[in-house]
Design a protein around this nucleic acid. Structure first.
Lengths: 199, 199
DNA sequence: GTCATTCATTGATTCGTCTCAATTGTCGGA
DNA sequence: TCCGACAATTGAGACGAATCAATGAATGAC
């Protein structure tokens, strides 16, 4: 973005350091800020009427936190919770939307961000609809190994609890699946998984 | 958009009338056009390695067909199939991306489109992870009744086969669920459903 | 070091949904 | 009008995953 436009926008922002356990916003609230992850992460949970809760997405440094809600000015479909000490940039919603309309570079970045988040969601739907629990676990491990650039030794980045929830199953099922997979392909020790047979 | 920009872009487009059964593009292909639904609809299917296939989304007149793939220049994650006679506007990919960068109005429209598609996907994930099959069927019917502005009599818009697939279950389960729900809330006659007890 | 708390594992059982199979219903074509 | 093709229903059974319950391991507070 041009420097003056950027500075104008930055005047409408503040940075926020939050402790583990903080809730950035609740499902159902109207967005007032566009949150941007500077460091750490935010976990996005969906909640049902009955109160069940499921992890849907994790956003990391550089990501916008649900830009879709901010540009739509519609209620959040997820709750954002911070599970590790993190810093966020908060951009005032109106100013952000105005800047989007004025600044092509910003609009372009937003398009890219929305597109990649959309694709992640589609991938997750395909996972849920087309794969069994063990298949989801396997592809999750393979995906981890790619992201960690570790062909053999991968480390689970969160509690198994959360990972299970992200994969759409219970922690018990996740645990059982891991131990079943020890018979033909991996070995598990706490949060460390060694891939023996990648196929 | 300004008239001359629009006309410039329209020179890079063609309209396409397709018969039922046509495949617009395959999962895995690289986008060459941005398809826009003019009339009719397109059904987007995800396919697994084993060849199983599931309906993920239906796009209708005015919608872009997976703009995320076009702006990312990344392979389609879904196949687009046309199940009823329909017309599409095909915009040449490069020209479309160029126009996005040049024309703020177009960029803004793209942002809105991507945001709403993102939210639909999130809603679907919550459906899959948090609700049982009967709950999904019930909320689908209620959603239909809202969209058709018919508080009582709703008509299933597609074959039960497809609806089941969209809801992430088999046609058998869908059928069973409907008949179970006849005991406390609806009556079913072919593709017509009468809502007796909305709650 | 001990204790309480949380997280993870394991077992037994129940429940939901899929699969396979047979039957019925519906529509369009010969 | 009969027939074939396809969609939808129904039943029986198997399977997967959730639930409930108990135990074991790790973590942090004091």
């Amino acid at each position: 973005m041009p420097l003056d436009a950027r500075e104008g926008l930055l005047r409408k922002t503040l940075t926020h350091s939050v402790a583990a356990g903080t809730v950035l916003f609740e499902q159902g609230e109207l967005p007032t800020f566009q949150h941007v992850v500077l460091s750490g992460s935010a976990h996005l949970f969906g909640r049902s009427h009955e109160g069940r809760e499921v992890l849907i997405e994790i956003v990391r440094p550089g990501d916008l936190v649900i830009p879709a809600a901010v540009v739509s000015q519609a209620p959040y479909l997820m709750q954002a919770r911070v599970l590790e000490p993190s810093r966020f940039l908060l951009i005032e919603g109106d100013a952000f939307r105005a800047a989007l309309a004025e600044e092509p570079a910003l609009a372009q970045a937003m398009i890219d961000s929305l597109a990649s988040q959309f694709r992640r969601m589609v991938g997750q739907i395909k996972n849920l609809k087309l794969r069994s629990a063990p298949q989801r676990v396997a592809s999750y491990i393979v995906g981890l190994s790619r992201r960690q650039q570790a062909p053999v030794r991968v480390v689970l980045p969160y509690e198994k609890n959360l990972i299970a929830s992200e994969l759409g199953m219970t922690r018990e099922s996740f645990s059982r699946t891991l131990s079943a997979m020890q018979r033909d392909g991996i070995s598990v020790q706490g949060d460390v998984i060694v891939i023996v047979n990648r196929r």
